[in-house]
Design a protein around this nucleic acid. Structure first.
Length: 306
RNA sequence: GGUGCCAUAGCUCAGUUGGUAGAGCACAGGACUGAAAAUCCUGGUGUCCCUGGUUCAAUUCCAGGUGGCACCA
């Protein structure tokens, strides 16, 4: 295989955007964003989306391509990505994906199984049941419909249980039936480059970036999106805390403090997600030359062993 | 300078009628297959300021020291 997808990943605030642009320029290619919040065109300050200036340097895809009122998912992203990759690989033999959304990166890499679409009303039904009758009630349903998954699922996590139930009901087969865990295989090579740094340094960067967002007008951006607060897209660090402040539940200072804390915690969850992925080669964001050399070396090896 | 109060986890503090201690926040670790910046689980991280004394035993009581705060000079 001669085509290569380089995935530049790392926790929020580590400096993926700038480094990604440099690397894309070096390889003379385009950037495919994989950030589940930068997709939304109405959100930009709080999501630290690339600036217009940055967008002009390198062609970016999947930035501002949907609205906060749209439904979107990892599966849709996979479809959109595969369509785009097919087109772009006609012109480039190397593409750069940049982002921090672990599940979406896995989707692009063919690591999530093909599972039929479900009617939103089924999810609604189980959500309602959960709210009215409690966790124990939907657990009991799952035990009946998919006893295998019941044994391995996090039984305290309603989202996991409801997701399984909606698949069971829609397809008539247990959710676990669809979890093949084999991976789909892709007709391009994948090189994963992870960015990491000392925790203290990362947290300092995150805190400073939140202060910058506030200075740039995050509060005003959030205020304009207040009417969409029930959309999933607005269930996002930086916005939900501002909404609490608008509601009078917390002070402005407290909101800023919580945005910092929740961003730090998010970064930690991202690192935990990737900790089990042995395909990732880790670098400090300052090691640009080392990263480029690594990409060139692996790419050459992949092409020789096609 | 004098008097009083305080000193316990990273922070704010509680507590031990003397048997080496616990809350909140911060933090640490983990899970994760179409909501994923979402959702969920686990964990107390400690020279109880220092030095003596009393005691079987002191973080706790006593004395001195050091530091902080308040008031008086």
């Amino acid at each position: 295989m001669n085509n290569t997808l380089v995935i530049l990943l790392g926790p929020t605030g580590i400096g993926k955007t700038d480094l990604g642009i440099d690397i894309a320029l070096y390889f003379n290619t385009e950037i495919i964003s994989c950030d589940s919040r930068q997709f939304y065109r109405e959100m930009s300050i709080g999501t630290a989306s690339p600036s217009n200036k940055q967008l002009k340097k390198v062609k970016h895809h999947f930035i501002n391509h949907i609205s906060v009122t749209d439904y979107y998912s990892a599966s849709r992203f996979e479809d959109d990505f595969m369509d785009l990759a097919k087109k772009l690989f006609a012109r480039y033999n190397i593409l750069l994906m940049v982002g921090g959304s672990g599940l979406y990166i896995d989707a692009a890499g063919g690591r999530i199984d093909k599972i039929p679409d479900v009617d939103p009303s089924v999810r609604e039904k189980y959500l309602e049941k959960f709210h009215n009758e409690g966790l124990e009630s939907i657990r009991a349903d799952l035990r009946l419909l998919d006893p295998y998954y019941y044994r391995i699922v996090d039984l305290k996590n309603p989202k996991r249980i409801i997701r399984a139930l909606e698949i069971c009901e829609t397809t008539g087969k247990p959710y676990s039936f669809f979890l093949q865990k084999k991976g789909k295989g892709r007709n391009f090579n994948i090189i994963k480059v992870g960015l990491t740094m000392d925790r203290q340094e990362l947290y300092r960067r995150i805190n400073e970036r939140v202060d910058r967002m506030i200075a740039e007008g995050l509060e005003e951006e959030a205020r304009e999106l207040l009417e969409y607060r029930n959309c999933n897209a607005l269930n996002t660090v930086g916005y939900k805390e501002m909404f609490s402040y608008f509601d009078g539940e917390i002070s402005r200072e407290k909101a800023i403090e919580l945005i910092k804390r929740n961003s730090r915690r998010y970064a930690k969850r991202q690192l935990t997600w990737w900790a089990r992925d042995d395909d990732i080669k880790w670098f400090h964001p300052q090691e640009k030359e080392g990263i480029i050399r690594h990409i060139e070396t692996v790419k050459r090896n992949d092409e020789e062993t096609k």
